[in-house]
Amino acid sequence: MKIITIVGPTAVGKTSLSIDLARRFNGEIISGDSLQVYRGLDVGTAKVTIEEMAGIPHHLIDVREIHDSYSAADFQQEARLAIEDISQRGKLPIVVGGTGLYIQSLLWDYKLGREGEVDDTGLREKYESFAEENGNLALWQQLQAVDPLAAEKIHFNNRKKVIRAREVFELTGHSILEPKEQPQKLYDSFMIGLNTDREILYQRINQRVDIMVAQGLLDEAEKLAGTPEVQAAQGIGYKELFPYFAGNITLESALEEIKLHSRRYAKRQLTWFRNRMSVNWYDLVQQPETLHEIEDAIEKWLEEETN
């Protein structure tokens, strides 16, 4: 089954490209973003507008309430159902998003169990933060509880290896030390990665934050400020504003934090996709004419027989 996947950091034009390709190739779009599932969180998630959709059906947007949780396992199940539905109707599924774990768990046959509950920042940052707050030993003890085989072989102070072992177990349900076959790839996916020069990317991210404020970001964040413990409230662009609402920092400081965290997240997104997936990279920001190159490559790929 053929699908197109568009990945990359924030603010590089994934939404615009997805609409162009859906119109050109009779496609429908599946959001692979872990926050766009929430109703009412439109500005801070850069959610596609009705006007931008241009009549193209979109899936997995506005499917959860703000207080609900949403996991990689939820996305995996619901996105696969959407792909099946779209394909059966003779249309081309186009998955768009920057949440690396979601895309990886969708395309490959990973078995996500109860511990598939992750937020949009990804597993690695989750465990890094846990270690920073609780220490390496506490992180190692967490690994020991679920994967004693790996814990026996990895010293508790080797944080990098402990995190990798914990990450593998959560994603696959297997010890990193267990011999196992590589997960099967489930789809014939043409993977498009969008990126641009780092300085330009960071400038676009900063500008996007300013635009979001003008569009009502503070109103959205204020809705979440009363329930900072819910998963939706942990998204970049929202949690940084809570100290401002409490009177502890200035608005300028909060916005600088959003920009900083957004830039760091973009860097992590690029690292994930470069290290874990085979992606065809393009720069539509500086070279918009390469859209024709992308379309030509997709046409050739669609003519190929699926293995």
Rank of each mutant, 00 (worst) to 15 (best):
K153P: 12
D296K: 14
S175L: 02
I236R: 04
Y38A: 02
E257C: 13
Q234V: 10
V285F: 09
T5P: 04
Y102H: 00
A82W: 04
R264M: 15
W108Y: 12
I83Y: 01
D283Y: 03
I4G: 01
N136F: 07
Y202T: 13
A46T: 07
Y102D: 00
I200V: 10
Q215N: 11
E229Y: 13
H58W: 13
L270H: 11
R89K: 13
Q287H: 14
E199Q: 08
Q36D: 14
Q207K: 14
F273P: 00
G193R: 03
E167D: 13
Q141R: 04
R39N: 14
D219V: 10
L302Q: 09
A233W: 07
A11D: 01
Q287T: 13
G32Q: 05
I66H: 14
I205Y: 03
Q269F: 11
R89A: 07
E52R: 11
F169N: 02
L81E: 11
K47L: 11
L201V: 08
L106C: 10
G55V: 03
L123W: 15
W108K: 12
A297Q: 08
V12C: 04
L284S: 00
G32F: 02
K111H: 08
R164K: 15
G27K: 00
Q142V: 09
I61A: 04
T121L: 12
S31W: 06
Q231H: 06
E115K: 10
E84V: 06
D120V: 15
V63P: 08
I3G: 05
L171Q: 07
I3C: 04
F273T: 02
E133H: 12
V95C: 06
R24G: 08
E78M: 08
E293Q: 13
P148T: 00
N26T: 06
G13A: 00
L112W: 09
N158E: 09
V168Q: 15
L149S: 11
S189W: 03
K180A: 15
L270P: 09
L270G: 08
K160T: 14
I200T: 08
V96C: 03
L186D: 00
I4K: 01
T49F: 02
T49N: 02
L284D: 00
D147C: 05
T172Q: 02
E167C: 10
N134F: 04
V63S: 06
K126S: 13
I56T: 12
Q203S: 14
E170F: 04
Q234R: 13
L251R: 05
K223E: 12
R164D: 15
Q184C: 12
A54D: 09
L139Y: 01
L92N: 05
E304Y: 13
S175T: 03
I176F: 05
Y244H: 05
